[in-house]
Design a binder for these strands. Sequence first.
DNA 1: CCATTTTTGGTCAATTTGACCATAAACAGT
DNA 2: ACTGTTTATGGTCAAATTGACCAAAAATGG
Lengths: 247, 247
Amino acid sequence: MHDTLGKEQIYVAVDLLILTEHAARLKLLLSRRPQEPFSGRWALPGRFVGMDESAETSAQLLLMEMLGTQKLYMEQLYTFTDIHRDPRGRVISIAYLVVVPWKEMDPLIREHAEGYQLCDVETGRELLRITDLDGREMQEADFAFDHERIVRTGIQRIQGKLNYTPIGFAFLNDPEGFSLSEVQEIHEAILGYALDPSNFRRQMLKQYEESGTLSQTEKTEIRRRGRPAALYQWKDRRQTQWQTENS
Amino acid sequence: MHDTLGKEQIYVAVDLLILTEHAARLKLLLSRRPQEPFSGRWALPGRFVGMDESAETSAQLLLMEMLGTQKLYMEQLYTFTDIHRDPRGRVISIAYLVVVPWKEMDPLIREHAEGYQLCDVETGRELLRITDLDGREMQEADFAFDHERIVRTGIQRIQGKLNYTPIGFAFLNDPEGFSLSEVQEIHEAILGYALDPSNFRRQMLKQYEESGTLSQTEKTEIRRRGRPAALYQWKDRRQTQWQTENS
DNA sequence: CCATTTTTGGTCAATTTGACCATAAACAGT
DNA sequence: ACTGTTTATGGTCAAATTGACCAAAAATGG
């Protein structure tokens, strides 16, 4: 479609940083580019913005194409505009950060997003290590365009936001409820280090229980080992506001 | 130059939200548009991004044109892409937040930025009131394009950043030193409410003194009334990093 | 010399945080 | 049935932080 680009105009694209979490691991949706430029390198899902779409709409459409849903947490991440970021011509990219609950991601990924892999993201306080399904680590040169930089920017953003927003809950919007340990697992996967269970629970409850957005249900979890956890619910009053809110 | 735009492509522009502070007031650089569209309405300084410039470079060039300097705190704010934000055609705007010390702004504004006014921004915890030099309040409809939204986004951003970054110090980079009351005045102007002097000082010193970025000089201020204040210095180790750092 | 103004340092109670310990509630294996 | 293991949950306690004050220091203006 856009194999060659005109030399006389700036093209606008959106790229999606789609994050999910499973088994104490932060995961990131990447694909190997099937064509030039950067054939074979890892790339974020992207799309050119049409004349009749806002960037946000364009991102939502791409999301719909890939996963078949729009009801996800999405925020604008950053706009990358380096002159030579795309060898085909002048393309700027507006990157969006998308959070998908694993339970939704798992079935969707098979149906819609063929060719995509959910790669592992390991992140300590400073480090960032991304590995594909075979456990091979990616270097910056393994990425297409400036996508490695986009990834780093996004990870930093979400790490910072954990402190003062309930963005962690966007990773588990299942209506059946969730345990606070699951929330903790998500925070740990994003931050890259362990948290104290007792203190974590205390913090979450104080922060969100009195505002009514986090409330305990009557059900409890079914586990294999250990004491079953109480299940909580997230009241979505602000879920839709998330879509347009700017930090 | 761009009186009429082609209908077949997306144009990319940058807009600058230039903030400064004086006499306990947050100020914002605006001009009345001299031409259609939105003739007579208030607008941020802006510029179309050239084919051979990154957005950041373009913003820096505009800054250089307007104020004759580039050595200012600047960060990308947000990218606005609504389809109908510009009646001339399809234009997206990458907004940048710029902080100028008053002592630099005052002389520069006369020389370079003719037609621009430094308007007052009054901001409580929720409210936002912007008034021109004659004290007349602006409504959303008094702004061109979606510039009122850009302003609100920017004010929110800087208010949030006061908590966890030293962005307040960007308002006074004078080499002669500054008193902590001046810093406090800046914070109060941005936040829209008063702070306790003693607690404010305690916080600033704990946060930045031990890292070596804030240090007391031997000089003291010359005042009209009251005890003269000790002057402090900001060590710029991270000033340049500010330019590219993303929150 | 006194009243006023602003800076600076300090107190003190309330709150928050971080590092723990202890118990509760389940299961697995003997 | 009992024992050990595992995970969830509740509690303690000292350290650190915050917010609301008070008071002295250091200047000026009358």
